[in-house]
Design a binder for these strands. Structure first.
Lengths: 350, 350
DNA sequence: TTGTACGCGTTATCAA
DNA sequence: TTGATAACGCGTACAA
């Protein structure tokens, strides 16, 4: 059994008969002059040994980890998958690696993730999920963020967070207002609403948008008709069962996100309820699967894949100062562009 | 503007009035004795400065990066998302971080990912996607893998790869045989098949399983009825359009994976084709969404989330020698357990 | 019980 | 044009 050993710059230097410094200069295409024959020799040695600089050592000396942390709430939800895909695609092109943390909205895990990212000297962190409304979280996270920023770690969040970081507003209230207004335009006057996790700021914002629009149109809603949920397909199914009690009283249901809307529709259909004939359903998010549900879901499309790419560009532009040429849309845009897409889950009542 | 600086072990030592070694001993709960008052002082300093050891420095000295690379073909496909979720969940508990690479089955990207993981001294790599049948890929990948193994990096793959690594067989042939046999049991005799990316070994294995079963039952199939696809929902939709020509000749279609089967069913329904009345459809994979399609898809369920967790356990057990107590199912099992789940996409013809 | 000195693999600085 | 040396932050063998 041979000894396991990494190939280091020293091995290359020895093989090429030069000093490590020279090898380093060749590897990094340094400005420092290197004799062309020497360079050739070094390159040959590098190829022969299949040498690659150790990124930990580089990171230490350069204080550049080239690591980007992405914290998601649920990677099985296409919402997050699309976002992650966009971020990774761009940053990978610039030689960054993406660290993923799937937290299930667990505060402890979220905090531990941030901690580890700090320990690795991550250069950027993306909080893809909404803010978790919790005092302990706020305080601890706030402390970490201060420290992270102090060593120039760039932090980006999707949806608003109460921290001094780059927030990409998803305009949750606006989205909920739009989709609710759309239903009203179609003649609906009595609604139910399927809510998300209470702890999520996003949940609150969307609910607020929904209620605001009702109020503006002089429509009352009982608390019973705000059905609890958790953003998941299964949660949507449970909400559907709950909804059955109120089916006679309402004509439409606004669901806080697509994933849950899909679950709700699926369960309703199982129970023999016709959508949109008996009840209309809308969601928010515009995940790919919303196109393919039965019936296809009318929803607000948030372009998450391209947002992910924008976030990637934003990060790269902040980190690689040379690359200022990148065209960043989100740099000074307040809100992400959104589109209401009419499909077949809403019935026109007028 | 204050100077940006990381808090290092030296800062803690200075504040506590001790040497860095003492701090290190406290941080790492070393066996080496430390006076309890000293320990208290150090801990206080650590808390005050919110000190965390720099993982790059630790990695360098200990030759332990605590990084695990996961290479996926398409993170938006629940198949991969579930796998990733499981891997991350377990390894995170043991303080590893997960690096994700979304390759879209691009050979160059796959190779670059491996390269970067090597540079970071990743301790384990999971190839979640099937093998890409390509000579250049095979050769280059093979070289990398040899080198990775030489420094004790554990490599695990899902589905068979022609490398000397831990292969978790997904029993693709068997799965295809089972699901095809099931259709035959239900009285079907004329089939179409929707294929996956040609380059994928998985594709070939499943197709082979399908053909074998037909042959065994003396059923002929024309090449026209092997419809090309790419594992994606959209690919499934395109296949559906193609399939229309042959609708009179067949009673069932076997689709290489669930994602594509979902697309196929969706498009067929758009065209007014009734499933399973006009045609029966089956998939392979058992992704969560297959439960919720219309109609729910009869498929072979591969338990990906738990497989992900098993892979996580396997990796941890290999890396943390102390934790030999972990119960690893996949250690010596040849095949992953699979289940045929009957739902409503198949019509009984007898 | 504590501290000193060295090395992990790099790169930057300086001297030759 | 090249090489020696120090330093990044840490852990550890050894000395005290």
């Amino acid at each position: 059994m041979e000894v396991k050993k990494n190939i280091s710059i020293k091995d290359v230097a020895k093989l090429a008969g030069v000093s490590p410094s020279t090898v380093s200069r060749v590897v990094n295409n340094s400005d420092h002059p290197v004799n062309s024959k020497t360079r050739k020799d070094v390159k040959k040695a590098i190829n022969k040994l299949n040498y690659q600089p150790n990124r930990m050592a580089q990171g230490l000396i350069k204080n550049r980890s080239k690591m980007i942390g992405v914290i998601v709430h649920d990677i099985s939800d296409e919402y997050f998958a699309e976002l992650l895909k966009g971020i990774e695609e761009i940053t990978f092109d610039y030689d960054y690696i993406t660290n993923i943390f799937n937290t299930n909205r667990d505060i402890e895990k979220e905090l531990k993730a941030i901690n580890i990212l700090d320990a690795y000297q991550a250069e950027a962190i993306v909080l893809t999920g909404g803010y978790l409304r919790d005092d302990y979280y706020k305080q601890t996270m706030g402390k970490h963020i201060k420290q992270l920023k102090n060593r120039n770690c760039h932090i980006v969040s999707v949806s608003s967070h109460p921290f001094e970081i780059k927030n990409i507003e998803l305009a949750n209230k606006l989205a909920a207002r739009n989709i609710t207004g759309y239903l009203i335009d179609k003649g609906h006057r009595s609604f139910a609403y399927v809510n998300g996790p209470e702890i999520l700021e996003t949940t609150q914002e969307r609910l607020c948008g929904f209620k605001t629009t009702l109020k503006k149109n002089d429509i009352e809603i009982q608390d019973d008709l705000i059905i609890p949920g958790d953003f998941s397909f299964e949660g949507g199914r449970r909400a559907a069962s709950e909804l059955l009690k109120y089916l006679e009283d309402i004509t439409a249901v606004v669901v806080v996100n697509d994933q849950a809307a899909l679950g709700l529709m699926w369960e309703l259909r199982q129970k023999g309820i016709k959508i949109p004939d008996t009840i209309s359903v809308v969601g928010i998010g515009g995940i790919p699967a919303s196109k393919y549900s039965y019936p296809p879901l009318t929803t607000i499309v948030l372009p998450l894949y391209s947002l992910g790419k924008e976030i990637g560009k934003y990060i790269v532009s902040k980190l690689d100062s040379k690359k200022e040429t990148i065209d960043i849309i989100i740099e000074d845009r307040e809100y992400l562009q959104m589109n209401l897409v009419e499909r077949q889950s809403v019935k026109e009542l007028i």
